[in-house]
Amino acid sequence: MGSTANNITTEENTTQAPGEEHDDSLDDGSDGEAWVFYRERKEWADITPVPQDDGPHAVVKIAYTDPFTDVYDYLRAVVVKGELSERALYLTEDAINMNAANYTVWQYRRKILRHLGSDLEQELNFCREMIEMNPKNYQVWHHRRVIVEWLGDGSKELKLTEIIFSQDAKNYHAWEHRQWALKTFKLYDRELDYVDLLLEEDVRNNSAWNQRHFTISQTTGFTKEVIQREVEYTKAAIAKVVDNESPWSYLRGVVQHCEGSLASVGDLWEWCQKMHDEGQCSPHLLTFMLDLMEDRMERQPDLRPTLLKRCLEICESLATKYDRIRREYWRYIERNLSHRFGA
């Protein structure tokens, strides 16, 4: 009994593990204090640990440390007993600290929290710490959502995601959580201001542009006035940095909400043309011009000969000069447009 884990611990000393140096300190989860094994704790003396059974020929073994094996042997033991107690809750904390990706431990923890009627505000604090330590872990965010649902109170969620964004403003988990909280608790009041702030900090933050689209779609919707306002906002952002895919993409997304077409929104063509005349040749500008012309050719067959010629010139310049990495793509677009709009 218990030999499987011990074998693995022995093997780690002889097998060079893939790519990473093994850290042989055994202080995981102990916050720098001396680790006391569960098997040596008086309050756990009534429990017989249950070892992991990996079978005789396990593959992809993990070189567990002794404290890890100890914690998980006791975790298995309380699961087998179906124990839903304060000490089991405490044990899940150690188990999570050692591996926050173990979703079954989180599930067990929720079962205990429910059973004990534990203080969920305290749980939110624990969860926040875990999120700050593991901001890209799916389990911590899921746990957060469940606890917030139980509490029916989303008032701390925007602040939490903002803490995470201060480290990584593009963290997908945090954006997903924020959108969920905004939708569930209707917290949109200051959302566009927050997006503005992020875009001021980094106009290339594509997640913030996406959030702008989300917020508007959930609040005012893309009315005629809003579209006009957003077009002006985006044009100003492009004026700051022309070679930035995010606002160009947003602009395309916004004008698609118009009845009609791309070209029906104000003076976009003239605005592009002016930038181009001033010597701007960002691929994003050229691509947008292509889209405007394609749209025009769809609707006005008489303009096709003139516009097609212009389109093919742009494709050529993208393929040979301004966007050579995508030359095969631009060649394809050249063929595609010629086929659709040629004589």
Binding site: A17, E20, D23, K61, I62, Y64, F68, N102
Partner: peptide
């Protein structure tokens, strides 16, 4: 064969 303890997040 065996992953180092730093890969323990793959345990499940």
């Amino acid at each position: 064969q065996v992953l180092p303890f730093t890969s323990v997040t793959y345990d499940t």
